[in-house]
Structures are given as structure tokens and as C-alpha cells.
């Protein structure tokens, strides 16, 4: 018997992972949720047929969204996390003892419940006393805050589906408003490789550039995501992700990571020419 999970990365390309068994399948108010056990990648979380994370490579994604801004901002105390129902972002954040408050806003409570049950490797820190989970629309939550957070991490699904509102100008503008003047926003930024993803990536970049003074894109290699080449956004009105990198201070924290290090931090912002071109095509202003 062979059981395979397949995801179409384009209408003509697909990634298939052989699975051992299905651990969970359910339909929430917002989406279909599936969890599989696989031989090569461990457990898989799948929403509406799209692979969200695998046990084997989730560390790359979560480390890159958390440690990059944390190594730039000198003193993050209050963090807002949008999405991230699997708990991976919260897990990485709780490793910083200087962080005082983590507000996580996830629209779909069932994702959190399912992850608590089946993905203990990411959903391990929801009960940390600093963590407060709000089950509501991220766009709505963030609208009500002004000058309130040091760091906002946007861990959204793709821009087609429940995550749609998190790729909009109104959302990025509201994040700008919710941040302190020296705040940082990082976001899941899609992939530059396949045309449909690239268009979504460009739209997101355009919207962020319009909202923040500094907006840079960085990359990582994530084997199970379409094309394997994935981007993240770094936006701030104060900090530059490389010039303001505090490598020594970060190393002093002695946080053990498997993917991230401060040399890689600098390198991650060095983008291939075709990606730079895609980004420049939608930038109206010359950036630093």
C-alpha cells in the first residue's frame, strides 16, 4: 500500500510526500484541517490542501521569522503575532526572557486545538504565562491598537483563503499604526519563483513599501514550500536589518538555533538578481 499527499505547486508541478497515515481531518468554520504522519518529513499540517509545515523543516521558517528581527531591535518587550496557530513562532519567541508579553491573534481556534493535540513540537509554549491567545480576525484586532508593540510577526497563510486580509494595504497600514515608532514588522512573503506566487509576493512588497520607510526582503531555503525558495519581509521606520544588526549582543544571549546565525542574517538579505528586479519593479522610492 502506498499513500501519498500531493500538493500542486503550479497547475503543472506537484510535490508528493508519502504518508504513513492520516491523524486528523476536520472542517472548521474557516478551512479544512488535515494532519498526516509521513516517513520522510514527520508530521504534516495541511490547511485547505496546502502544506503549512512539516515536522522536519518547520524550524527554518520559524527561526527566520523570529530571530532576524530579534537580533536587530535592542529591546523587544511586547510582541504581536498574527496567525501562527501551529505555535512555532510563539515557541521561538518564548526563548527570549526579555520579552514580557506575546499576543497571538489566530482566526481559527480549531487550528490551535488540532496543533495542541497533534503537533506538540510546535505547539509547546501556548501555556507560557506571557502568551495570550486571541481568537479573532487579525485585521480587526490590529486596527484597535496605536503605538502599542515593539514587534509584529505576520505568519499568514497564502493570500487566497482566510489569510487574504493579511496581504492588504489596510493591514500593513494598521500594523504601522500599532507599532511603536522604533517597531519592526516581519512577514511571510511568499516565493519569487513561480509566476502566481511571484505576483502575490510583488503585491505584498508594494503594499509594505507604501506603508514603511524601510522595507527589505530576505530569504531562506524551505524544502517543502513551492520551489523551496521562500521570502520574508522586514519593515520598520527606524531600523535597517543589516546596519542595525546587533550580532554581538544576540550571540551573548546564547540561544541555540539550527538554521539562523548572524552571518546568515546578513547573507539572507543578499537576493538573486531576478528577485531584486521583481521587487524594484514595484518600488516607487529608492531604498537604502
Amino acid at each position: 500500500m502506498e499513500l501519498w499527499f500531493s500538493e500542486k505547486h503550479t497547475p503543472h508541478v506537484k510535490l508528493s510526500i508519502q504518508v504513513d497515515r492520516q491523524l486528523y481531518s476536520g472542517e472548521s468554520d474557516y478551512q479544512r484541517i488535515d494532519v498526516f504522519e509521513s516517513h520522510e518529513f514527520g508530521r504534516l499540517l495541511v490547511l485547505d490542501g496546502y502544506l503549512m509545515l512539516t515536522e522536519k523543516d518547520e524550524f527554518i521558517y520559524h527561526e527566520m521569522l523570529v530571530h532576524v528581527p530579534m537580533a536587530v531591535h535592542p529591546m523587544v518587550k511586547k510582541v504581536l503575532v498574527i496567525g501562527a496557530g501551529d505555535g512555532g513562532i510563539v515557541r521561538e519567541l518564548t526563548r527570549y526572557d526579555t520579552i514580557e508579553q506575546i499576543d497571538m491573534v489566530e482566526i481559527d481556534k480549531e487550528v490551535v486545538d488540532v496543533c495542541r493535540q497533534f503537533l506538540p513540537f510546535t505547539a509547546s509554549k501556548f501555556d507560557d504565562p506571557r502568551v495570550q491567545i486571541h481568537f479573532q480576525d487579525g485585521l480587526k484586532y490590529v486596527r484597535h491598537f496605536e503605538d502599542a508593540y515593539d514587534l509584529i510577526i505576520v505568519d499568514s497563510t497564502d493570500p487566497f483563503g482566510p489569510g487574504e486580509g493579511l496581504f492588504t494595504r489596510e493591514f500593513y497600514g494598521n500594523c504601522y499604526k500599532a507599532l511603536h515608532t522604533d517597531g519592526i514588522m516581519v512577514n511571510q512573503h511568499e516565493s519569487p519563483f513561480y509566476p502566481v506566487d511571484a505576483v502575490a509576493m510583488q503585491r505584498a512588497h508594494k503594499r509594505i513599501v507604501e506603508s514603511f520607510a524601510i522595507s527589505r526582503v530576505y530569504q531562506a531555503h524551505i524544502p517543502t514550500y513551492p520551489s523551496g525558495h521562500w521570502l520574508f519581509g522586514f519593515a520598520s521606520n527606524c531600523f535597517h536589518p543589516i546596519y542595525d544588526l546587533k550580532a554581538k549582543e544576540w550571540k551573548k544571549r546564547e540561544i541555540k538555533t539550527r538554521y539562523y546565525n548572524t552571518n546568515l542574517h546578513r547573507g539572507a538579505f543578499a537576493l538573486p538578481n531576478y528577485v531584486q528586479q521583481l521587487l524594484e519593479d514595484v518600488e516607487h522610492v529608492d531604498l537604502v
Binding site: D137, L139, R143, G165, E170, F171, G173, N174, K177
Partner: peptide
């Protein structure tokens, strides 16, 4: 859908701010 209304409300809030 309610999430589309959230977009409208958020955009209006941004328009006021800007």
C-alpha cells in the same frame, strides 16, 4: 463575508489616519 467587511472597516480607518 465578515472578513471582507473587516477589510472595508480597516481601510476606512487607514484612510482617516492618512
Amino acid at each position: 463575508r465578515i472578513q471582507d467587511l473587516e477589510r472595508l472597516v480597516s481601510a476606512l480607518s487607514e484612510i482617516r489616519r492618512r
